[in-house]
Amino acid sequence: MAEVLDRNIRISTRVKYALDEMRGTKSCNELIEQMINYFEVTGYNPRRPNIDSIQKIGRRIEDLIKIVKSQEKDIFRPLLDKSFSSGNMSMNNEQLVRLANEN
């Protein structure tokens, strides 16, 4: 069995309140152990914020926006134009599926 050492740490009242809110029914020891495991698994170091990861997420979001805009321009706009040019504003689902398959 692992040796258990009793240690005290000094924290501010605000941090204590936040810790109590986070831990719920767990003990402080369990919560801190989970935090340490999270840092080990994710590789995140709270002393050195990982700006690179934040920038990567931002680039991925921009890529998704580009994909959606491309689909709008290449797929949805031609479908809409065909439906308006045919003069039939109230197309049923079968006609929309047919137009989508054509494109």
Rank of each mutant, 00 (worst) to 15 (best):
A2D: 09
V4R: 15
V4W: 06
L5D: 11
D6R: 15
R7A: 13
N8Y: 13
S12L: 03
T13Q: 12
V15S: 00
Y17I: 03
A18E: 12
E21W: 09
E21C: 01
M22S: 13
M22P: 00
R23A: 07
K26L: 15
S27I: 03
S27A: 10
C28R: 15
N29Q: 13
L31S: 07
I32Y: 07
I32G: 00
Q34S: 10
Q34M: 07
I36H: 11
N37F: 07
E40S: 13
G43W: 01
Y44R: 10
N45R: 14
N45G: 03
R47T: 04
R47W: 12
R48Y: 08
D52G: 10
D52N: 13
S53W: 02
G58I: 01
R59A: 14
R59H: 10
R60E: 14
I61T: 05
E62H: 01
I65L: 08
I67L: 11
V68S: 02
V68R: 15
K69D: 15
S70W: 00
D74R: 06
I75K: 06
I75G: 01
F76Y: 11
F76V: 12
P78W: 08
P78I: 08
L80F: 11
L80E: 12
D81T: 14
K82F: 05
F84P: 01
F84S: 12
F84K: 15
G87K: 05
G87I: 05
M89C: 05
S90T: 04
N93D: 03
Q95H: 04
L96Q: 02
L99G: 05
L99P: 11
A100H: 04
N101H: 09
E102G: 05
